[in-house]
Write a protein that binds this DNA or RNA. Structure first.
Lengths: 82, 82
DNA sequence: TCACATTATACGCCGTGGCGTATATTTTAA
DNA sequence: TTAAAATATACGCCACGGCGTATAATGTGA
């Protein structure tokens, strides 16, 4: 399920969802990415000072990627309705 | 044109494209976002230490949003082929 | 070509992220 | 309910981002 993210919090939430769907703990993800469990926690909680490096590394480890696109006028589009 | 980004460099490139398509200079974008022209430059050049806050603020000013999704196996999917 | 606009880079400063380490706090199973 | 697992938070430290300001390097149009 693709996640739209316009804020750091939404970005963190999407990452947390994915991590959980993979059955990983923050600590386990931390090992794979050489990041501290505390750092993963901060990212998932949407700390806006988090570095892009951290987001990129975590997304790679979770098999995620980002699509940059023009904002849709509303929050919902066709696929959300049907 | 949606841009897939798996690295900070790709993210920066997508942002730069969008800024240019809007006919904005880094300085003009900096004014809108209360960021220095140098900061925009760093973001667009894919400095991995850049903060999420910076990316988020710039994307908002450019009318961009991010979609987080599972990585596609290859770079191309159906829509790129047809 | 050449002046002007744009972008990249530099310096000193301050704030904060991520580090190791450790411990609260909360969540989850048994 | 309670022990164990998972997550949030804390402390001191170092590195570096973003700040103002300024300038160098590039691009661009006339």
């Amino acid at each position: 399920m693709d996640q739209i993210a316009r804020t750091a919090k939404q970005l963190g939430a999407a990452i947390r969802r994915r991590r959980r769907s993979l059955g990983l703990s923050q600590a386990a993800l931390g090992e794979r990415t050489h990041l501290r469990q505390a750092t993963i926690s901060a990212l998932e909680n949407g700390e806006p000072g988090t570095q892009l490096r951290t987001m990129i590394d975590v997304m790679a480890a979770l098999g995620l990627e980002v699509v940059v696109r023009e904002r849709t006028k509303s929050g919902a589009d066709i696929e959300d309705i049907f």
